[in-house]
Simulated scan of single mutants.
Amino acid sequence: MSAYQGFRWLQLWHELIGRRSGGDLVLVVGERDGEPVFIWPFGVWRCGPARIARWLGGKYNNYNLGIWALEELSTANSKRVMKALREIAATAKIDSYELINQPEVWDGLRNPFMCLSHTPSPSNSYRLDLERDFEALYTRRRSSRSRRTLRRKRETMAQSGEIRFIHGTDKDSVLRIVEALVEQRDARAHAVGIPSIFSERGALELTRDVLLDGLTCTEGPLMQAHALEVDGIIRATYVGGIYGERYSCFLNSFRDDELTASSPGEQLLHDLIEFSCEGGLKQLDLGVGEERYKTSWCDPDPLFDSFIPITGTGKLYARLREMRQSVKRSIKNNPALWQAIKKARKLRSRAGL
C-alpha cells in the first residue's frame, strides 16, 4: 500500500470531503482460505444515471493502489481481478469503475490492475531511490554545475538571516507550517490562474488534522510537515506521508518574495532528501505532474487509469471519461500547447476573470 491508503487518511478525507460530495462507502475485503488478501477502499458516486466507483481519496491521492498482501499482489491475474469487480458491482449496484493514478509497479511488483484494460494517466509521478550516503546520491543525480548554483544561491540566501530546516514535531510548529503552506499555495494559485486546493471545503482541515494526528499516532501511515525558514520567516514547505520506507509528497509551496531568486523550494527539497536519507528511507516521490524541480532529482514513475464498465450505462460513461483523459494527456504532452494554456490562465487571473 501507499501512504494514501492509510486508514486515518481515508477516514478524515471521507468525513471532511468525500461524504459531502454524496459518495457511498464501498469497502471491499478479499479473502482466500479465510484470510484477507486485499482491501479495496472504494466509494460510489452518482453521475447522471450512472453509479461510478472510485478510489477513496480522489484527486488528493497521488497514488491509488489498494491494500494488498504481497503474495496476492504478485500472483493476481486479470480473471480473478475482473471476477471480483463484477461481484462487487452486483452487490453495490455499480455501473462503471473509474480508477485513476494507479502505479504500474509498487515495491518492484506489477500492479494487478495492469492486467485489465487501461490507459496512461495524463501525467506521471516522480520517484527517487534513496541511499544512506546523501552526498554520493547528490553527486550522481545532480551535475557539478547545478550543485555549484544551488550552493551559491544558499550563500546569497544566508545573507538575509539564519537558515533553518524545520521538522514539525509539535503542535505549534505544525500549525505554523500549515499556515504558511495555505498562504503560499493560495498566492501561487492566484498568480497562475488556477483554483487553490484550499478553496475546496475541508482541504485545510484534512491537511491540518492528519498532521496533528501524526504527532501522536504510533502505527500506520503518517503525514509530516517540513519547512525552510530564513530570518524567522517560512519561505518554503513540504507536507508528505511516510509509510514503510517511502516518503510521498502530498503538498509543497514556496513564498514569492525577495528571496525567490535563491530558490527556497529547491533548497528545502535538498534538505528534505538529505533528511530522508539520514532517516533510513529507501524511496521518495514528489507526486503527480511535470515540473523541473522533480525531473532534476527523480525518474518518471508511470501511472495509469482504468475505466472498467459493467453495464450498458457504464460503457457510455467509461468511454466519455477515457476520451476526456486522452485529450488531457495529449495537451500535457504538447509543450507548446501546454505553455499556451498556462499563459492564458495567468492573463485571465490578472484580468480578474
Rank of each mutant, 00 (worst) to 15 (best):
S2C: 08
Q5I: 00
Q5A: 10
W9G: 07
W9K: 02
L10W: 01
L10K: 01
G18V: 04
R19L: 12
G22F: 15
G23W: 15
D24F: 03
R32P: 07
R32E: 13
G34Y: 06
P36T: 12
W55N: 03
W55D: 05
L65R: 00
G66I: 03
I67G: 05
I67S: 15
S78H: 07
K83V: 14
A84T: 13
L85S: 12
A92G: 11
K93L: 15
E98T: 09
Q102C: 12
Q102D: 02
E104W: 15
W106E: 09
G108P: 08
L116N: 05
P120W: 05
S121R: 00
P122M: 14
S125H: 01
L130C: 03
D133A: 05
A136V: 14
R140Q: 13
R142V: 06
R142G: 08
S143P: 13
S146R: 14
R148H: 14
R151L: 09
K153C: 06
K153L: 14
A158D: 08
Q159D: 10
G161D: 02
E162T: 08
I163W: 04
R164F: 03
R164E: 13
R164K: 07
D170W: 00
S173D: 05
V174W: 01
V174E: 01
L175Q: 04
R176W: 00
I177L: 06
A180P: 05
A180S: 04
E183V: 02
D186L: 06
D186R: 05
A187P: 00
G193I: 07
I197A: 07
E200Q: 13
R201A: 12
G202R: 04
L204Y: 06
E205S: 02
L206H: 05
T218E: 10
E219W: 03
P221C: 09
A225E: 00
A227D: 00
L228N: 02
I234T: 04
A236Q: 10
V239F: 09
G240V: 04
R255P: 03
E258R: 14
A261P: 02
A261S: 15
S262W: 11
S262Q: 06
H270C: 07
G279D: 15
D285R: 03
L286Q: 05
E290C: 13
E291R: 12
S296G: 13
W297E: 14
D299G: 09
S306V: 11
F307M: 03
P309T: 03
K315N: 11
L320R: 08
R324A: 12
R324P: 02
R324C: 10
I331M: 14
K332Q: 06
K332G: 09
W338G: 01
I341D: 02
K342I: 01
A344T: 11
K346P: 07
R348W: 09
S349F: 13
S349M: 01
G352K: 02
G352I: 00
